[in-house]
Computed example of a mutant assay.
Amino acid sequence: MNFKFNHNNINVLDLEKSLKFYKEALGLVEVRRYEQEEGEFILVYLGDGSTSHRLELTWLKGRTEPYNLGDNEFHLAFTADDFEAAYELHKKMGCICYENKNMGIYFINDPDNYWLEIVPVR
């Protein structure tokens, strides 16, 4: 038996705002969308154009309160082939929420406050 990563899911409050953020901050683009017939939810799968891994954004109709992320100790990590340019982009966007210069990494947060780790290619 062999298992492979397929996708990660996060729930988002404002789908369009999240799509714009993930495109601008990480270059992720929509590769698939599923809209439930009654309009209760929408699933949008984002891809990076070079791996098969997907980030699934789930939007739920009627949700008006931000999601409770608890201690928010989980995160997704992305490598950046041009770490300095990525850092400058994220600094300009105002989305850097934590830096660890000793480890050579930093984190950004998305519109729903999910943390995303940015690491250089090593």
Score class of each variant (00 low, 15 high):
67 Y>K: 13
4 K>F: 12
103 M>C: 00
46 L>H: 06
87 Y>L: 11
76 L>C: 09
17 K>M: 08
69 L>N: 06
101 K>I: 07
62 G>A: 11
91 K>T: 14
3 F>Y: 13
91 K>W: 06
44 V>E: 07
50 S>A: 11
86 A>Y: 03
71 D>F: 00
113 N>Q: 11
72 N>M: 06
64 T>N: 14
95 C>K: 02
50 S>V: 15
86 A>Q: 15
92 K>T: 15
45 Y>N: 04
1 M>F: 06
86 A>R: 15
22 Y>R: 01
52 S>Q: 13
11 N>K: 15
21 F>Y: 10
40 E>L: 02
87 Y>C: 12
71 D>K: 10
16 E>K: 15
78 F>S: 09
121 V>G: 04
97 C>N: 07
77 A>I: 04
76 L>T: 07
110 D>P: 12
111 P>S: 05
15 L>G: 08
61 K>M: 10
93 M>E: 09
6 N>F: 04
36 Q>K: 09
122 R>Q: 05
37 E>H: 03
112 D>K: 12
12 V>Q: 05
85 A>V: 10
81 D>W: 00
42 I>M: 07
39 G>E: 00
34 Y>Q: 05
35 E>W: 03
40 E>Y: 02
48 D>T: 11
39 G>I: 01
25 A>W: 12
14 D>M: 08
43 L>M: 03
109 N>T: 05
20 K>S: 13
77 A>G: 15
94 G>D: 02
45 Y>T: 07
95 C>G: 01
26 L>K: 00
29 V>G: 06
44 V>A: 09
94 G>A: 11
1 M>W: 08
41 F>T: 02
65 E>N: 10
1 M>A: 14
77 A>L: 11
54 R>E: 13
26 L>P: 00
110 D>W: 02
25 A>I: 02
84 E>Q: 14
87 Y>M: 12
77 A>N: 10
118 I>G: 03
1 M>R: 09
46 L>N: 01
16 E>F: 09
84 E>F: 05
68 N>R: 09
99 E>K: 11
73 E>W: 01
66 P>L: 03
29 V>Y: 04
77 A>W: 03
120 P>M: 08
61 K>N: 04
24 E>C: 00
62 G>C: 08
111 P>A: 03
94 G>Y: 08
47 G>F: 03
111 P>W: 05
35 E>C: 02
116 L>S: 02
55 L>I: 15
63 R>H: 02
79 T>S: 15
64 T>V: 09
120 P>K: 10
54 R>L: 15
108 I>P: 07
119 V>S: 12
83 F>I: 13
4 K>D: 10
109 N>E: 11
53 H>E: 14
